[in-house]
Design a protein around this nucleic acid. Sequence first.
RNA 1: GCGCCUGUAGCUCAACUGGAUAGAGCGCCAGAUUUCGGCUCUGGAGGUUCAGGGUUCGACUCCUUGCAGGCGCGCCA
Length: 567
Amino acid sequence: MNIFDYYKNLFLKIIKDIPIDKSIIKKITVETPKQKIFGDISFNAPLILASSLKKQPMQLANEIKELIQAANNDFEKIEVAKPGFINFTFKKEIFLKFIKIIDKNYGKPTSTKSNKINIEFVSANPTGPLHVGHCRGAIFGDVLSNFLKFYGHNVVKEYYINDYGNQIYLFVKSVYFRIIELQKGKAFPEDQGLYPGEYIIDIAKDVLKNIKNENISSFDETISILTPYAIKSALDIIKKDLDLMGIVHDNFVSESDIVNRDILSEAIEKLKNKGDVYTGVLPKPKGDAEDWEPREQLLFKSSKYGDDVDRALQKSDNTWTYFANDVAYHYDKLKRNFDYYINILGADHAGYVKRLSSAVNALNNNKTFSIKLSQIVKLYKSGKPFRMSKRAGDFILAKDLIDAVGKDSARFMMVYRSSNSQLDFDFDLVTDTSKDNPIFYVQYACARINSLFDKSNFDIEKPITDAKLENLKYETEFNLIKKIVEWPKIVNLCYQNLEVHYIPYYLYELSSEFHTYWNAGKENDDLKIIGHSDKELINSRLYLLQKLYLVLTIGLNILDVKVLKKM
RNA sequence: GCGCCUGUAGCUCAACUGGAUAGAGCGCCAGAUUUCGGCUCUGGAGGUUCAGGGUUCGACUCCUUGCAGGCGCGCCA
């Protein structure tokens, strides 16, 4: 149960005689007021309804207040506040009831139907290890998937392997020359635009081990033998990197497989039938375009769907572009019939968003496709931009990051900010054991709660059933309860925005309320949670903390960050 | 040149999608403080939300014109 929805529905029922236009009904909300002095919940209906009823918001608020006051008995105080809010303060015994309903599904909506959701993320080229730039999108995608599962949906995490085309050709060529270097000592060519990273040597060794007896002669003769092994080797490295972050995809889709199955001709056919494909000449691009000449080629009319210009499907030599294969891939994805599609792209692919969503819109009219961009991460150590590794050119490897700070810290921090703001990632901070480190602060709260249970010989896993909640009466206790009650609201926020940074934020705030509660015992012996002999009071307080612990656990599980029992 | 993202306290970021006095953490200032679990606690000061214009009862949020930063921009992937 979500108390905000519960009271919204209750209030709407009470004021059912007031005519409400259906289009504005969802703008009416029950919220936590911004400030504590405004009470526990507030209702904005007078503000929303005033104009259509041609009444003053304050006057309407007073009328609605009277109606609710007459019909409901849950509140100690109901007040109208300028510009037209109605603020409610619960009777304490009502508030305490909200705590009782908390279980492992707390916050999960009960009415939502379960949808099949496809979420594509990472999809890094299988040409080498993941670097830090991939981490954020990877973790964001994984946490968002966990969240959507918690919300009640059926989620498939998908990875699109770009194992086709020129980049792969260059990659395999690089592996080939590393093999030649290993076998014959011939220096690796620096001038052919090949992959210079030393990890290619590891891949070369791995490939050699697997193909064993194959005779490595010229590149043209061995390319078809080397390619699958080289891709597999690179993909294994990527999967290991993902595993370090705690990420496992459900489905890997290969571009060359899409090509082999000739999905493209079916997709093009469909676009042709809609009149979205034509042969034409693209306008000259702005900026640097020295060697550009006008050419006739097959184009997709993406401008019809909001893109700036139409996009090429075929190159001048009649082979397909990368984009064309991506159209085919998405066509295949759409045919697999999910209710909802999410793509997570790195910020450097922002320019690709319009043409991709144009293609999806052309292939499928219902609007169930969202693209999320994950912004870049800047690494810092001791306040300075930080480089960790000279391997792989300038890239800092994902593995190095996880090795340095641990999976939990990386996961927590990577989703601590909204996905479309840039993020500063400070190595010192995330490994710090002080309250300045939010991960530590949240996990410390879990450990402290466990310790209180151990000291009192209670099992934290075993629900306390006989607590007398009316023993809870201090402000610090109620502040904690209020924060716990906000959780379903956080869940809604995440869902509406497809963002998850609200969760670590909330967990931090929740932990902060707990630490404040705990610290209050230093000043006032009555507030020591267990440091006294009143068994019944200890029972009540541990009951509250057990519920708190459950909420912390739900949140940390969505982040896939460990709940620490001891530190 | 064009497109997308961003611009909020000294710094890093929130702000429930149009609501109340724009909130946290760090930093700064002032006090308190040896153990329920040590890696502190309580309070305070900090703002013309980049600038101008518009929409309305009401704007950080929407529209518009600029400015600044980031990313991207041909048949690469």
